[in-house]
Write a protein that binds this DNA or RNA. Structure first.
Lengths: 147, 147, 147, 147
DNA sequence: GTGGTCTAGACCACC
DNA sequence: GTGGTCTAGACCACA
């Protein structure tokens, strides 16, 4: 853990979001490129059902201001998600969760969850904690510890 | 889940390691630079006590062959750890865990653990799982699921 | 005197440097690795107060062109200084003297000066000159002989 | 000044040296390869007249033990000096200052002195000291400060 | 055999 | 444009 992991956590709850709600948190100390963190978080919001087809995303500019990063970085993330068919940009109107995608794919969601869990347990293992120790740790956290 | 997360897991258990033992696993799908993954894993091994002062690390070239990456990438990781005082290189002989490390280990270990836990819970939260759901998930894993 | 001491002296005085100014000189005949010479000279500039927190360093590529060496060599020097907390890199913008450096500067400067003096007098001694002879020699130099 | 400059200073005054006398000091913190330091110091002893044609050098083994370095390193230094015509090895008998070389070449000695002085003044200059400041510093040292 | 230095060049992240 | 990552490969220092 070299430089203190500067962490930017901010929430976005724009009034233009009919059914969706998304919170971005950037972790500049993790080594993961910023644009990938954004992609991941939008993907996760879709997979978990928090964002649904038709939901509107924050504008690039607004999000850039809030996250204090370059608009190009966000544009790149939106762009890649559009290529993957997850987002859809309507020129002049905004960016939306694509309608074409079926409802959150159970399988994808499950894969992502288990992949994340796996990575986490491996790292905890490296740090000398087994599953039981991890469970004890989580139980000690006053609920809501992560969100 | 962007590109399939190609994962390389391999173990190193050189006979020259008296008290140490370290397993490297590269996750090329995570976006984290390879040299940083190596740094992290060595740090973790030291923090958890699996690698101790005086323990010898795999040679740069041997590890490069095993991980199928360029020796310079490993050299970069070792080098950064040497600058930070965690490793010590003896030219012509090899690379070792430094003897010097002062006291604040316990603290560092705790910080790293809670930082890792925090990141994990945030991501699980994004995926729609709260602490209880996470605990249930972990309990379902046949112990040793991640190591 | 082994191989002819090819020496490259060049000055950098980029217009973007508000308060800083640094001159690099490479001595390829000294046996000291190039990247270490660069590190030393930046350290010295900081210790002496010529470069101050916030000052911008030459870009890697510009300096590589001027010194006629590979950009990676300079990147390595900058990188080590960043790990040590002396420099700070802002991606896409450039490399700067870190603002953070704590107090013990005065001390470090003194140590470096006396270490340098000590090494020099030892070598002069090997060459058969004592302190008095050295002083006479220095006095003979038209002031500014070395900078 | 990263790691404290571990310095090994030891003197060699073997009884087998008829007219010569040489002191080796290794500075492992300077970045200069050890074998080059040895070469330099022998050269300097010859240039200054302390070692003269016919004088015997320490054996490789003895010197290796004293300096706590690998005999190969010393062998390499002696070897290079032999190639340059400064030393001469008589199998089974030892290594000597070559008879062929004329008495210490005034010019070479002068060049070496001024080169050393130049490098030193440039570094002091980097550290913010001009010639006068340097002279004051040297005067403050109780004579013998470097030898 | 070990690690260290340097080069050359491709490609990525970010402003 | 900035720096960062990684590769491939030559050559050096040292045990």
């Amino acid at each position: 853990m070299t430089p203190a992991a500067v962490r930017v956590i901010l929430s976005y709850m724009g009034s233009t979001l009919p059914g969706g709600q998304i919170t971005f948190s950037l972790d500049t100390g993790s080594g993961v490129p910023v644009y990938r963190q954004i992609i991941e978080q939008i993907e996760n919001a879709v997979l978990s059902g928090r964002m649904r087809p038709g939901d509107r995303l924050p504008t690039i500019r607004a999000l850039a201001v809030e996250l204090k990063i370059n608009p190009n970085t966000i544009a790149k993330a939106y762009n890649e998600l559009e290529i993957r068919g997850i987002l859809l940009t309507q020129m002049g109107s905004g960016t939306y969760i694509s309608e074409k995608r079926p409802a959150p794919d159970e399988d994808e969601h499950g894969k992502k969850v288990s992949l994340t869990l796996e990575r986490f347990l491996r790292e905890m293992n490296e740090l000398g904690l087994d599953s039981n120790a991890v469970i004890k740790l989580i139980k000690k956290i006053p609920d809501g510890g992560a969100g």
